[in-house]
Amino acid sequence: NMVHPNVICDGCNGPVVGTRYKCSVCPDYDLCSVCEGKGLHRGHTKLAFPSP
Rank of each mutant, 00 (worst) to 15 (best):
N1D: 11
M2K: 11
M2A: 00
V3T: 10
V3E: 11
H4G: 13
P5Q: 12
N6Y: 06
N6H: 14
N6W: 04
V7I: 11
I8M: 14
I8L: 13
I8G: 07
I8V: 12
C9W: 00
D10H: 15
D10L: 11
D10Q: 15
D10R: 15
D10T: 15
D10F: 11
D10A: 15
G11A: 11
G11I: 05
G11D: 05
C12D: 01
C12L: 00
C12E: 01
C12R: 00
N13P: 01
N13L: 07
G14M: 09
G14L: 10
G14C: 08
G14Y: 05
G14A: 11
G14K: 09
P15Y: 04
P15V: 11
V16F: 03
V16M: 03
V17L: 11
V17F: 08
V17H: 13
V17S: 14
V17T: 15
T19W: 04
T19S: 08
T19Q: 07
T19E: 12
R20A: 12
Y21S: 03
Y21V: 02
K22A: 05
K22L: 04
C23H: 01
C23A: 00
S24G: 06
S24H: 08
S24M: 06
V25Q: 09
V25F: 07
V25M: 09
V25H: 10
C26T: 01
C26D: 03
C26G: 01
C26W: 00
P27D: 05
P27F: 08
D28F: 11
D28L: 05
D28W: 03
D28A: 08
Y29K: 03
Y29H: 04
D30C: 09
D30S: 11
D30E: 09
L31N: 06
L31K: 01
C32P: 01
C32H: 00
C32Q: 00
C32T: 01
C32N: 00
S33P: 08
S33M: 08
V34R: 11
V34D: 10
V34A: 10
C35F: 00
C35A: 00
C35H: 00
C35Q: 00
E36W: 05
E36M: 04
E36N: 09
G37T: 13
G37Y: 10
G37A: 13
K38S: 08
G39Y: 07
G39L: 06
L40I: 15
L40V: 09
H41A: 03
H41D: 07
R42M: 13
R42S: 14
R42N: 14
G43R: 09
G43T: 13
G43E: 15
H44Y: 01
T45I: 13
T45K: 12
T45M: 08
T45D: 12
K46N: 14
K46T: 11
L47R: 10
L47W: 08
L47T: 15
L47N: 14
L47Y: 07
L47H: 13
A48K: 13
A48F: 08
F49I: 15
F49A: 10
F49W: 10
F49M: 15
F49C: 12
S51G: 12
S51N: 15
P52Q: 07
P52I: 03
